[in-house]
């Protein structure tokens, strides 16, 4: 079991705040145990920096088990690092070699401004959900849970879309910084369920509108988001959202035209 420890060279993005320019800074970290997680490696670096009287590297993290979506590093040019289906917190150092140079950057997107070092502000995602990512049902107003049967296939597809952790890897990896995978996952989940049906048109229109307002780019179907998504959210959702949006736009136009004619 016992493996040799590794010596690494780290190139890390350091930026004091949103309005100050940042730069890559080199660090050497010796004695890295391959059993460590990537974030534990960062912990060790930070402990050494603090003890040396330097500023530790700020980065976001919380659950460290791949579900909260808080961790967000761009490692060697890939969102969440080299392994597929893995968040940074679940990436382990055994996937690196002694002597490796590792480049670590924050998510880069105009809609995700840097707060400090590797931490970015993703509140734009919250505002997109606030624009319509819900079913308008008040507490206490619900019918019995089994009142509406839902085909298992639909429920499973809705679940697959709903597993999005809102980390933003899709945006970080997209050359256009598009948030289409994130937005479409929520639009799809609710479009696939009868509970979401009454508001589906309004929802698609409003969420897309907010997405554009936040400054995310357009989708040009490169599919990079699907590859880098740690939860394997499918780009089929984007196609579904495009249909939802188109249909909603047409209905809205017709309604307007109808009103003008009458």
């Amino acid at each position: 079991m016992s493996q040799n420890t590794m010596n690494l060279k780290l190139k890390i993005w350091r930026q004091k705040g949103a309005s100050t320019p940042g730069k890559m800074v080199d660090y050497t970290l010796n004695g890295v145990n391959p059993e460590m997680s990537f974030l534990e490696m960062m912990d060790v670096l930070n402990q050494q920096l603090i003890e040396a009287g330097e500023e530790p590297v700020a980065f976001d993290h919380d659950c460290r088990e791949g579900i909260c979506g808080m961790c967000s590093m761009f490692i060697n040019g890939r969102a969440h690092g080299p392994m597929t289906g893995t968040t940074t917190c679940q990436l382990h150092m055994r996937h690196f070699k002694d002597g490796d140079t590792i480049t670590i950057e924050p998510w880069r997107s105009a809609a995700f401004p840097v707060i400090k070092d590797l931490s970015v502000d993703r509140s734009s995602f919250d505002r997109i959900i606030q624009a319509g990512g819900y079913v308008s049902v008040n507490t206490g107003a619900a019918p019995d849970a089994n009142a509406i049967p839902i085909p298992k296939e639909d429920a499973d597809s809705a679940f697959d879309a709903a597993t999005c952790i809102g980390c933003g890897a899709c945006v970080a990896t997209c050359k256009n910084a598009s948030a289409m995978l994130f937005v479409s996952a929520k639009v799809s989940q609710l479009a696939l369920l009868p509970q979401g049906a009454p508001e589906r048109q309004e929802r698609a229109l409003r969420m897309v509108e907010q997405m554009d307002k936040e400054g995310f780019g357009n989708c040009t179907n490169t599919g990079a988001c699907e590859v880098e998504c740690p939860k394997g959210i499918s780009i089929e959702n984007i196609a579904r959202m495009n249909r939802e949006f188109l249909r909603a736009s047409l209905v809205k136009k017709k309604k307007k035209a109808g009103m003008a004619a009458s």
Binding site: V135, V137, A142, I150, P151, D156, L190, Q195
Partner: peptide
């Protein structure tokens, strides 16, 4: 029992059987 009703109404995709029930 009310919790399950509320969550389903919100669109929480609980596991279902082939008959469409929870």
């Amino acid at each position: 029992v009310n919790i399950i009703d509320q969550c389903v109404a919100q669109g929480v995709p609980f596991a279902r059987e082939y008959g469409g029930l929870l």
